[in-house]
Design a protein around this nucleic acid. Structure first.
Lengths: 164, 164
DNA sequence: TATTGTTATACTCTATAACTATA
DNA sequence: TATAGTTATAGAGTATAACAATA
């Protein structure tokens, strides 16, 4: 006679829902990224913003916010924190906006940010065939393009980036 | 002479980072889902939990929390809210746990939840070829399987589900 | 001893409104 | 009038700690 093993396995009604499964998978990678950047004492949002400043020296924080889908009101404490840690400077560009530049410390940290990001990318997506990878990237572009479609989403709030 | 058009297009250093692009795409679909469920006066978390109860009548809220990656402490107000709205009941299963069941109203609402979810799925992923779709689902499974790999993530907090 | 439900609480990211200064 | 930076504040999701009751 078999001892009854309590199999706590719930039926998953979303098992075949691609949007849901993609989200679950993304949460895994975001958690890994969060943990990895924690060793650099950075949040994911801070790391991403540093990468953007590194790639766009002299841009202002509102432009980065638009690119990332982060409202300019929420950029304030993040950028202020990075400046307070001397990872970037923001001399006035004109009377109302500041030009962001990485400091030497910021540039040095950026290298580690990129290494950590690459490691995560490699770990989770390194075994994907190149053509599958391209298919995926195109899928992502299509999904984001559809955001302005039938569902009439406001462009600004479609795509915030920070929270795991 | 050409008038200089201010082309505010920042270089995107993450343009080719699959993890990042997948996340951006996911945020788009989650925003659409949030907006859609808003018409049913439901949060995404509430809708997902109702789907799980519908698929697993009699289960308790901690089990759902484990399946979704939501801590049982955070299940409390959500389930209590659904009970207060008479969408589910929770008679005691044994002395310490309750068995969750949808009410008739909950079952009726579940139909609309599924329709709304299907519409989002169709809108964003309806044009994907079946074999590509399967590739994607397998990719998701692989990513989640890797969470217990090198990065040694705690199984519990890997995969919360609610927040857009 | 482990599990279930619960309260209280803190932290993060996101959102809106409103203000100031400048283009 | 539109834009950039800012402050204050509210909401939602997630986190830990602690407790009582039960298995």
């Amino acid at each position: 006679m078999l001892t009854e093993t309590k199999t706590e396995t719930l039926a998953d009604p979303l098992d075949d829902v691609l949007g849901y499964q993609l989200r679950r998978a993304m949460l895994v990678t975001m958690t890994a990224l969060t943990d990895s950047y924690e060793e650099l004492d950075l949040k994911v949002s801070e790391a991403i913003i540093l990468r953007f400043v590194g790639a766009n020296p002299g841009c202002n924080q509102s432009a980065i916010g638009r690119a990332l889908g982060v409202k300019r009101t929420n950029m304030v404490p993040i950028v202020a924190g990075l400046e307070a840690r001397s990872l970037l400077i923001r001399p006035p560009a004109d009377g109302r906006s500041n030009a962001l530049f990485l400091t030497e410390a910021g540039k040095e940290l950026l290298k580690h940010i990129q290494s950590a990001g690459d490691a995560i990318e490699q770990h989770f997506f390194g075994d994907i065939a190149p053509d599958t990878r391209n298919t995926l990237l195109e899928l992502c572009r299509n999904v984001r393009a559809k955001a302005e479609g039938t569902f009439g989403l406001p462009g600004g709030s479609v795509n915030a980036i920070t929270n795991p």
